[in-house]
Simulated assay, not measured.
Amino acid sequence: MQIDTIGETGSTNADLAARLASGDVLAEGYWLVADRQTAGRGRQGRQWFDTPGNFMGSTVVELRVSDPPAMLLSMVAALALLETVLQRLPDPLRVRLKWPNDVLLDGAKFCGILLERVKGHAVIGMGVNLVSAPSIDGRDTRSLSALGPAPQRDAFACELAAAFAKEVARWRSHGGGDLRTRWQAAAHPLGTVLSVHDEHGAVVSGQFAGLAEDGALILRLDDGSQRVIHAGDVTEEKA
C-alpha cells in the first residue's frame, strides 16, 4: 500500500487517469490524496465541493478477465467506506448505503464515489466529509464532525486504503453474489418504495427487488413487472 499526498490539484481521478493513459504503471494499493481539489467531480458530472481536512483521494484496480463485473467496484468502495466509518460511530444504524454508491449518515450525503475506466484499469475516486459538509441546494449533507471529533485525514486515509484492499480481495475471491448480499444488508430493505430519475430523465417508481448481477437496480412496478435500472438518482419514498 502506497499513499502519496499532493497539496492541490484539479482532480485526483483525472490525475491517475492521465498517468495510466500515458503508460505509467500504477500498482493496486496506490493512492493519490489531495489537500485540495479545484475541479473535483461526482457522478453524472456534478461538482464535488472540497474543504481542508476532508478526505479527497483516488486509487486504481487492475481489471482482469476472471474478475466479477467491474461496475460492482462502486459497491466495493461503498462497503470499504462503510467499514471505515463504522469504527468511529457509537450507533451503526446511523449510517447506511443507498444505490448506486452512496453512503448516508443520518439519511444525508457525506461522501461521494466516482468510478471511471481507463486502459484496463478502474480509477476509483472518493470524497468524504470529515470536518465539514458543503451547503448544496436541494440536498441534505453531513460530516463526521457532527457526531464527535473529526478523524485526522491521513489516519482515515490509511484505514480506508486497508479496508478497500480487503474488499477488492473479497470481490475477486467470493464473487459478485457475496458482494451484493452484503451491500443489500446495509441498504434499503427489499420492498422499500423507491423513485428513480433514470439516465433519460424519466421518473420510475417501484418496490426495491434486489440487484442484478452487474449491480443494476431492480424495481418491481405496480403491474408486477420488473424494471432494471443501470444509472440514476434514487429517492426513498416515505411510508
Rank of each mutant, 00 (worst) to 15 (best):
G125I: 03
A122G: 14
I136Q: 12
L97F: 05
D140I: 06
S74Q: 15
G127L: 02
R139L: 15
E62G: 15
R117W: 12
V85N: 04
M126F: 03
S58M: 14
M126H: 08
L73T: 15
D91G: 08
S66G: 14
L79W: 01
V103A: 04
G120I: 02
S132M: 07
K109L: 11
R139I: 14
D106N: 15
N101V: 04
M56S: 13
E116W: 07
S58F: 07
E62D: 11
A78E: 06
R64S: 13
L89I: 06
G120V: 06
A70Q: 11
L81N: 01
V60E: 06
V131D: 03
A108I: 01
P90L: 01
V61M: 05
P100S: 14
V65R: 11
E116S: 15
S66N: 14
D67C: 14
S74K: 05
S135P: 03
L73G: 15
S74W: 05
L89W: 09
A133T: 04
G112Q: 07
P90W: 00
V95Q: 10
F110A: 02
L97M: 01
V60P: 03
D91S: 06
G57W: 02
P92S: 07
W99H: 09
H121W: 04
I113F: 01
L81K: 00
R88F: 06
L130G: 00
K119E: 11
L105Y: 15
E83V: 08
P92L: 09
L93P: 03
V131H: 09
L82D: 04
V95M: 08
N101S: 07
S66M: 15
G112V: 03
I136G: 14
A80V: 00
N101F: 10
V118D: 00
V76Y: 10
A133C: 01
R96T: 10
P134G: 11
V76K: 09
L105C: 13
S74P: 07
L82V: 05
Q87L: 10
T59L: 04
V118K: 01
P90H: 08
R94I: 08
L82Q: 12
A77I: 06
L89F: 12
T59I: 00
D102Y: 08
R117D: 02
G120P: 11
V118L: 03
L72D: 09
G120M: 04
E83L: 07
G107P: 01
